[in-house]
Computed example of a mutant assay.
Amino acid sequence: MAQYTIKELEHLSGIKAHTIRIWEQRYCILNPKRTETNIRYYDDADLKSLLNISLLNERGYKISKIAKMGQEQILQMVQQLCDQPCECSHHVSALVAAMVDMCEYKFDRALSTATIQMGFQETMLRVIYPFLNKIGILWQTGNITPAHEHFVSNLIRQKLLVAIDGQVVQWQEDSPTYILYLPEGELHELALLYMNYILRAHKQRVIYLGQNLPFKDLELTYEQFQADFICTVLTSVPEREQVQSYVNRLSERFPASTVYIYGYLTRTDGLVLPDNVKRLSCITEFIAKFN
């Protein structure tokens, strides 16, 4: 069972720690436990309860009224609200709760509801990316296991593949060519898949090479297609101290192309970008290039 500090609850729920303490004292909405060394902590049930209470409170229900409701009534009202057009934070909270339970049905329902309401691209930007940021917090604090991450990543990947498969793309003969790939050993594919979706939505020609690509195969593909752009995501590969040399290698080997790099490792301190390498700080920068 995961253990959360009150600051972690604040990050995950959006409710200030000070407010959580007041709600505890006045309305007894949470029941924190204590470690053997008398340190307060919260468990999964507390997190899910707070996410539901936060959702109702944001939709105008007073905390004093929520505190008088039973758990079953709260769950019913939350489900009704999640089925209605609403702010994205509610969808994100629903995904977090489904992930904690590892419930595919709940996760799929929450994601499908958001997609119906705002479309796939907006759901990715306004729901999935904030949700993935919260996963980062849970990962950093040790409150989810690799199994949780794989569970949600595979479900989101399935949604991306279905969306891409549903695209009908007929690019123009003069369309620029993009090669999309992940370095050898890199398996975090969600961002790259979404870049593929964006490019196809804007009728760009894409050569999608996917995960774990040896550099030699990238070179061979480039020789065949002479791509105008190369896009990659650096999340866990290469090693941090090798990022600069890897970026330099891309620049030197493909001097006639613009190389877009994205991901955690691209924020390495002191990274110097060659002229033909562009760093994307967020995915919306990539989308903006086509607007």
Rank of each mutant, 00 (worst) to 15 (best):
L111K: 03
F107A: 00
V152W: 06
Y129E: 11
V100G: 01
T145Y: 09
H150K: 11
E122P: 04
L56C: 03
L125N: 07
C88Y: 14
L187C: 03
A94I: 09
M69Q: 08
M124L: 07
Y181A: 09
H91W: 14
I116L: 12
H188I: 10
F131A: 03
C82Q: 15
A147Y: 12
M195C: 12
L111I: 01
S175F: 12
A97Y: 01
T141S: 12
Y194D: 04
E173S: 15
S54H: 07
P85A: 11
D165H: 14
Y194P: 00
L138M: 15
D83S: 13
M77N: 10
I137M: 02
G185K: 11
R157C: 09
E87V: 15
L180Y: 01
Q73T: 08
E149Q: 07
E189F: 10
M118W: 02
L199C: 04
S93M: 03
F151K: 05
V92Q: 02
E189S: 07
A94F: 06
I128G: 01
D165E: 13
E173M: 14
L193I: 08
L95Q: 03
Q79G: 12
S89I: 15
C82K: 14
G60V: 12
Q73F: 05
H188L: 05
A191D: 07
G166E: 11
Y181N: 01
Q158H: 08
E149M: 10
L187F: 13
P130L: 12
S93A: 14
T115E: 08
H188S: 05
E149H: 07
K65L: 12
L187K: 11
I156G: 00
I63R: 02
Y197P: 04
K62M: 11
L55D: 00
C86M: 13
Q117S: 13
T113Y: 00
F120G: 01
A97K: 01
L192G: 00
D83H: 11
N57L: 07
I74Q: 09
L95A: 02
V168L: 15
I144V: 15
L160Y: 09
L95H: 05
D108A: 13
I156S: 00
A114L: 09
I179W: 05
G142M: 10
Q121N: 08
D108Q: 14
Y181S: 04
M99H: 06
L199Y: 08
A110W: 04
I116M: 08
H91L: 05
N57V: 07
G60P: 12
F120Y: 13
L187N: 07
P183F: 05
S93Q: 09
A110M: 04
C88Q: 14
Q80T: 12
P85E: 06
I179A: 02
L193P: 02
A191Q: 01
P176G: 14
